[in-house]
Write a protein that binds this DNA or RNA. Structure first.
Length: 204
DNA sequence: TGCCAGGCCCTCTTTAGGGCCTT
């Protein structure tokens, strides 16, 4: 598969529109099923992390106070990924925060997101749950570290994406898995995925 | 004061409701 950047945010809550901010970001570059580069940083957005979120992520207000500014980190991470297409687990969430944090530094997103959650629902329909941790367990993938920390979750999402690409090769005979194809698959209604993939394979 | 995300996806659906997923 072409190189993609799998990203994961930790945040103070669920919605930038409600004032929530990013507290940590990780991006891993995945090329031909292997992680070839990594970026990870805590970030200080100058807002308080609710105690529930401190417990969930292990990221404390004390840790954030010593972290570089959110603006500096977002400049670094956007420079790190450049124009490489993005992937996230439940990408609608990470895309909201990516766009909101970029807007604060007067930058705009340069690429589309693909979503490993939408892809898993289509390609692993029998998984008991489509939470990232549950999918990692279901597919016997390595646990990268503490769940709800950005780098561990980004690495596990990258492993999941490699597994999904392998499923596409093994079950549907698709040799060249591209970000564009992933975007296409995630937009097909679940009931029509096999039909769409068979048609795609015939066109190759 | 009271409210508080939003998109996907299923179903006892489409003039709707509720669970899943992200923090």
């Amino acid at each position: 598969m072409e190189v993609v950047a799998v990203i994961d945010f930790e945040t103070t809550g669920l919605s930038p529109a409600q004032g929530d901010r990013a507290t940590e970001i990780a991006a891993v570059l995945l090329e031909n099923g292997k992680i070839v580069d990594r970026y990870q940083s805590l970030m200080n957005a100058g807002v308080r992390i609710p105690s529930f979120i401190e417990g969930l992520t292990g990221i404390s207000n004390a840790m954030i106070r010593q972290a570089p500014s959110a603006a500096d980190v977002m400049r670094e991470v956007t420079d790190f990924v450049g124009d490489i297409p993005l992937v996230a687990h439940n990408a609608s969430f990470d895309c909201k925060f990516w766009d909101a944090e970029l807007q604060r530094i007067n930058r705009t997103r340069r690429q589309e997101f693909a979503c490993s959650l939408l892809l898993s629902r289509r390609l692993l329909p029998h998984a008991p749950s489509h939470k990232l941790g549950a999918l990692v367990e279901f597919a016997n993938l390595p646990v990268a570290g503490r769940a709800h920390r950005a780098l561990a979750d980004a690495e596990m999402a990258a492993s999941l994406l490699s597994h999904l690409a392998e499923e596409l090769r093994r079950k549907f005979g698709i040799g060249q898995v591209t970000h564009e194809l992933l975007r296409k698959i995630q937009g097909v209604p679940k009931a029509k995925v096999e039909q769409a993939l068979a048609k795609h394979q015939q066109s190759q």
